[in-house]
Nucleic acid binder design. Structure first.
Lengths: 155, 155
DNA sequence: ATATAGTGGTTGCAAGTTGAAACCTCAAGC
DNA sequence: GCTTGAGGTTTCAACTTGCAACCACTATAT
């Protein structure tokens, strides 16, 4: 985890989300949640991380409103962990991460999992940032605009 | 940093990129690099992290081919750090992170920086994942397809 | 020539974090 | 009432982090 600053309000629009997510494990947990995993044991088995770490990460995700606990759907006396709306909002981020991985971490001929459209079975398109009028935007085409008014947020 | 697995080949398409990035600081460094920062001192001053940590992160980013060192452009005897193609490939990820932050970490009326199209000055569109035929895809509309052939990559 | 200051780091060390394993708790099955 | 399994918590050694001090090199001032 990154150095904790006194007030979250002093963190910029990139650092604040990073702080909420917590660490890499959390992101992998969220990915597994997108894949339908819900139970403590499922996450633990699939990710192979220590139980204390998993417990801490789940607590953190719940505390930040990214996941929520609900009573188990199958009548067992345990709880399950599900993504909140905020958690589901991480979908583009995970896709971006996966696509970056596909682009730069696998040899052209190396077999790897591919994200496909469930309906057509075809690979999805690359994520593209577009302007209001539809142009594809690269890093050079964008600027961060400071708040127009009053209260201070760093950068 | 996350537990290091013996072979990077045993990591899935999400974990492998995470491992390469290293930690949150690295992502903030990359963001600053997109904003035009190039020098050790600039990063250190802007992010406020310890010099040894910055040095370690930059080393890691260079080692993973995300940034590269070049001789200083201004004739000074130092080097500068610039994004490689692979590093520039992180743009969508940073945008996803920022947009998630905009959506869930600021009160509707809270002032915050906004990513705008340089040309028009208007805010950019939300990132959307689309199928080959242009439908917007959500988490439920996608599946990860295992490698069609031979070599094993986890998940 | 000598001191001073700025840049770009490295080194040492105290404090905090992580993770493997052991342990605990509760409910269900036998 | 003994065992099994799920879902954790506790313990503790190993590792990582971050502050501060230091070092090397260059440029500028005295």
């Amino acid at each position: 985890m990154v150095k904790r600053v006194s007030h979250k309000d002093s963190m910029c629009g990139v650092a604040r989300p990073l702080d909420a997510i917590g660490d890499w494990w959390s992101l992998l947990i969220v990915r597994d949640a997108f894949d339908g995993l819900r139970r403590f044991g499922e996450f633990q088995k699939n990710l192979g991380l220590a139980k204390n770490v998993l417990a801490a990460r789940l607590r953190n995700l719940v505390a930040h409103g990214i996941m929520d606990t609900v009573p188990a759907s199958d009548g067992s006396p345990y709880q399950e962990y599900v993504l909140t709306e905020k958690g589901r909002g991480l979908f583009p981020l995970l896709v971006a991460l996966r696509q970056w991985g596909e682009d730069f971490f696998f040899e052209p001929d190396e077999a790897h999992v591919l994200l496909v459209d469930r309906k057509s079975g075809l690979p999805v398109r690359k994520l593209e940032l577009r302007s209001q009028d539809g142009r594809v935007l690269g890093p050079e085409d964008t600027v961060v605009r400071p708040p127009t008014s009053s209260t201070h947020a760093w950068r």
